[in-house]
Amino acid sequence: MEAGRILVVEDDPDINALLARIATREGFEAVSAFSGTEALLRMERAPFDLVLLDMMLPGMDGPAIIGRMREAGARTPVVVVSAKAGASDKVAALKLGADDYVTKPFDPDEVAARIHAVLRRAQGAPVPLGADVGDEVLSHRGLRLDAARRRVTLDGVEVALTVREFDILHVLMRAPDRVFSRERLYELVWRCGYYGEENAVNVHVSNIRKKLSAAGAQDEYVKTVWGIGFKLA
């Protein structure tokens, strides 16, 4: 994976500098922004491969930035780095379109690992189900997933999914008859140990359903198997 550019959006100068050092240590070019409005200006002027984003910012807060990005169709991965550690805060950020969430105080190595994991997903690394996806194209009842191009369409209408949403759908479509527990989906998509993060999986599945519905889906494509997890419907 080639190193890219990371935008660090954090109003605390010390934390901003620390996050920038972590990104630089991992081989990325780090660009700092200290307010929400500055972050949007920087994103308008040049592309970034990933955004490390605080939630409480002057000018425009983190949720508003994520909302603006997703409404504009930007698929740049966002890793939230926030002091808000409540489950409801994480769920809210994921619903808006964040790809991952790290709470403060954080371990620099964890931040680095999250950056690499999210970028692997964004750059099309194969879903780890034992086979290289190559130019894999999967179809199911009008739903089409192009693995190489990371593109999903429903009856020809493009469905804009975030990194995590795409990968969850990819896992389900590669094994249409299999029921995946929330724990297993988390391990496959996030590529790390499961720490009771079932809210993260639930929120992303909910987002997939909403986006497919908005694209014209009349029937359910992701079925909840109560007490177990999810499968392709």
Rank of each mutant, 00 (worst) to 15 (best):
Arg174Tyr: 07
Val9Arg: 04
Met55Leu: 15
Phe230Trp: 10
Ser35Val: 03
Glu165Thr: 08
Gly59Thr: 01
Gly196Trp: 00
Val9Gly: 03
Glu26Asp: 13
Tyr101Arg: 06
Ile228Asp: 11
Val203Asp: 11
Thr103Asp: 06
Leu161Ile: 09
Arg25Cys: 09
Leu172Thr: 01
Arg68Lys: 11
Ala74Trp: 13
Ala46Gly: 10
Ala46Asn: 11
Gly142Phe: 02
Val102Cys: 03
Gly156Arg: 03
Ser32His: 06
Leu40Tyr: 04
Glu10Gly: 05
Val203Trp: 11
Arg151Ser: 13
Tyr194Gln: 08
Val189Ile: 09
Asp54Glu: 08
Gly134Leu: 08
Val31Ile: 13
Gly229Asp: 01
Leu57Val: 07
His204Ala: 09
Pro105Leu: 05
Ala200Trp: 06
Arg120Ser: 11
Phe48Ile: 06
Thr24Val: 08
Ala160Tyr: 12
Ala215Asp: 05
Arg184Ser: 12
Ala46Leu: 11
Asp146Gln: 03
Val133Tyr: 12
Asp14Lys: 11
Arg174Glu: 12
Ser139His: 13
Val203Gln: 15
Phe230His: 10
Val157Leu: 05
Phe166Val: 03
Ile115Cys: 07
Ala3Phe: 12
Arg184Cys: 06
Gln218Trp: 10
Ala233Met: 04
Met69Gln: 07
Gly130Trp: 07
Val111Trp: 03
Leu232His: 05
Leu138Ile: 08
Leu119Cys: 09
Ala20Lys: 00
Ala33Asp: 04
Lys90Cys: 12
Glu183His: 08
Leu119Gly: 10
Phe106Gln: 08
Leu53Glu: 06
Ile66Lys: 02
Ala30Gln: 00
Ile168Ser: 01
Glu2Pro: 10
Met1Tyr: 10
Val133Lys: 13
Thr76Val: 15
Leu19Cys: 09
Val102Asp: 01
Ile66Ser: 02
Asn199Ala: 15
Ala98Asp: 02
Thr162Gly: 15
Glu38Val: 08
Ser206Phe: 14
Asp155Lys: 11
Ala72Gln: 10
Ile228Arg: 15
Pro128Lys: 00
Gly27Arg: 01
Ala46Val: 14
Val31Gly: 06
Trp190Phe: 14
Pro176Gly: 02
Glu26Arg: 11
Asp49Met: 05
Ala17Tyr: 08
Asp155Val: 07
Leu119Tyr: 03
Met1Lys: 10
Ala23Phe: 01
Trp226Leu: 15
Val111Ile: 05
Arg75Glu: 12
Phe180Val: 10
Glu198His: 13
Val9Ser: 03
Ala233Ile: 04
Pro13Lys: 06
Leu143Tyr: 05
